[in-house]
Design a protein around this nucleic acid. Sequence first.
DNA 1: GCCACTCACGCAAGATTATTGCGGAAATAC
DNA 2: GTATTTCCGCAATAATCTTGCGTGAGTGGC
Lengths: 161, 161
Amino acid sequence: MALDKIDRKILTLLQKDATMPVAEIGRKVGLSTTPCWRRIQKMEEDGVIQRRVAVLDPAKVNVGVTVFVSVKTNEHNEAWMRKFAGVIDEFPEVVEFYRMSGDVDYLMRVVVPDIGAYDSFYKKLISKINLTDVSSAFAMGQIKYTTALPLDFAIVVDDDK
Amino acid sequence: MALDKIDRKILTLLQKDATMPVAEIGRKVGLSTTPCWRRIQKMEEDGVIQRRVAVLDPAKVNVGVTVFVSVKTNEHNEAWMRKFAGVIDEFPEVVEFYRMSGDVDYLMRVVVPDIGAYDSFYKKLISKINLTDVSSAFAMGQIKYTTALPLDFAIVVDDDK
DNA sequence: GCCACTCACGCAAGATTATTGCGGAAATAC
DNA sequence: GTATTTCCGCAATAATCTTGCGTGAGTGGC
């Protein structure tokens, strides 16, 4: 599961553009097609590469507005958390959901077309599960968004090159 | 740029798995290869599909910890914002960055291996740009994360089927 | 030092998939 | 009713993926 310099180069390329032919990737990392393909294959088996997906333009599919929703609760137990998670899973508007430390207990990122749609979402949400303290923060603009994770921290065995 | 039911089906599939052969997508949406391929092609040209990327496992590349960083500032002007954006662009640890309304002015999501690495990031950040009020919230766990946007709001022309 | 072993590489062939050319049917315009 | 447009599907071609096989570098045992 350790990655060398070539693996990381491959991942950097695939995180930007997963349509690139293996032959071209190989050329860019200084490898012929076969060993490059085998490396990619192995990283998929190992789960380093989880999947390949199409990324859409939020505005073009009419979900240009992002809202961050903070939730505080008194229900601090596993069962409630699972129920909450189950409810959230049913909402495709919620694209990220975290259990937090500190002030708020849960944080989610919601994408909607506009304020009105957010209100609909909100009402639907509180009808499915009882939430004591909810607060919403609207994003005025997305300055940066990337699915590419930094590879500077990845575990390495030999890093001579 | 309007999408009909078939387009949305195609997008749903591609948002889950962009490696699926066009022939199979066609079969699933009730279309032969060629028209299905042309639809995908058109949606790429129109920018609805922005790109196809590989999604990695955060834990496997050693960035299992997410931190949300809230920033308040007194500098409410375009120039400063651009500078800030430029600085953030240089940090691969910052995977999302939003300009917010309300209490905080900016919100970013940062991925790191652990608390120590976050501290390094934090010190590096404040050395690059002067920030008055910064507060960090650590995620204890990622309950949901998807790159798939909801298509329920997409603009539609004819929706007979 | 030499042999056996493993591992990663590259070439070349075969299998899949993407892409294009062409012709036909359904919907729309006039 | 006819012309035009649009979308479909078949079949051929081009590109890419995937596998089989042989080679050389590096490693450990002796």
